[in-house]
Amino acid sequence: MSLIQENWSLLLLFFTVALLYSSVGFGGGSSYLAIMALYGLEFKFLRATALLCNLTVVSNGSFQYYRKGFLDFKKALPLVALSVPLAYLGGKTPLSENTFFILLGFTLLIAAVLVWFQPYLINKVNFKNINSDNVILNLVIGAFIGYISGVVGIGGGIFLSPILYIINWDKPQKISAMASFFILVNSISGLVGQFQTPGFSMDWGFAFALMVAVAVGGQIGTHLGTVKFNQSMIRKATAVLIAYVSYTLLTKYL
């Protein structure tokens, strides 16, 4: 019996996560990883499967955001210039199963806090002295998140988006577009690094079925994210979801 036949409810869960995350420019890699972990699937192909699902969601999302004029490649370049090679190095970083899930749990906890308090930070912090076009700042942000995303296998958009809001980088839909594009290029880079890791293995039939589910969910979510839609509620729901995942992982592996 195939993995999908044994775990058919994964299709519905991945569809739902893709719809939710793509509406705010995320790929959903963090929750894909957590869901597969909670289902007890083999650690060796979790990161690659999550990144492939990320790619499926954000490739369409990035195209839709670009088509609607929200994606500015010139402004995006400093954020991805260092993130791509560092995501590759992160993907090649060897991790034990226990270390990986502890790291994932803590990174999700940080992400949940950032996503939940993002609207409050926007309203309370004085952004007048921060230059959103500062090339050095953008390079540092991209490099740090790129490496973390490569190691964990989550794309990095869930960290990038709140930080861009904090520094008043641009309008909400342009930040969602940037997060989607950031996930796209870093997921590709992280995957290449993982493919070159000794002992890498993959269940391609299992991955393809999940990619179909997230493709449908991502298409719907991206449409909702590019029209008038209550992104604040989606962000809070996303924060609650990843906080729960973080708690579950940390209590299991610590």
Rank of each mutant, 00 (worst) to 15 (best):
M1V: 13
S2K: 05
L3I: 15
E6I: 06
F14L: 07
F15C: 04
T16I: 12
L19H: 06
L20D: 09
L20A: 14
Y21N: 06
Y21W: 09
S23F: 03
V24D: 00
F26V: 07
G29Q: 02
G29F: 02
S30T: 08
S30A: 07
S31K: 00
L33W: 14
A34K: 04
A37N: 15
L38R: 09
L38I: 14
G40R: 07
G40V: 02
G40P: 05
E42Y: 15
F45H: 15
L51M: 13
L52I: 11
L52T: 10
L55D: 02
T56E: 09
F63N: 02
R67T: 08
R67I: 10
F70V: 06
D72T: 10
K74A: 06
K74F: 03
A81V: 03
L82F: 03
V84T: 11
P85H: 01
G91I: 02
T93R: 05
P94D: 12
L95W: 08
S96K: 04
L103V: 08
I110K: 07
A111Q: 05
V113W: 09
L114T: 11
L114S: 13
V115M: 05
P119T: 08
V125S: 06
N126L: 11
F127D: 11
S132E: 01
V135H: 10
I136V: 09
L137V: 10
N138I: 01
V140L: 13
A143H: 05
Y147H: 09
Y147N: 11
S149V: 06
G150S: 14
V152R: 00
G155M: 07
I158K: 09
L164H: 00
I166Y: 14
I166M: 14
D170C: 08
Q173W: 13
S176I: 01
I183R: 09
V185I: 02
V192Y: 01
P198N: 12
P198H: 14
F200R: 07
M202N: 10
W204T: 13
F206M: 04
A207E: 08
A207Y: 07
A209F: 03
M211I: 12
M211G: 07
V212T: 02
V212S: 01
A213W: 09
Q219Y: 15
I220S: 11
L224W: 01
M233R: 12
I234C: 03
A237Q: 12
A239S: 14
T251R: 01
K252D: 08
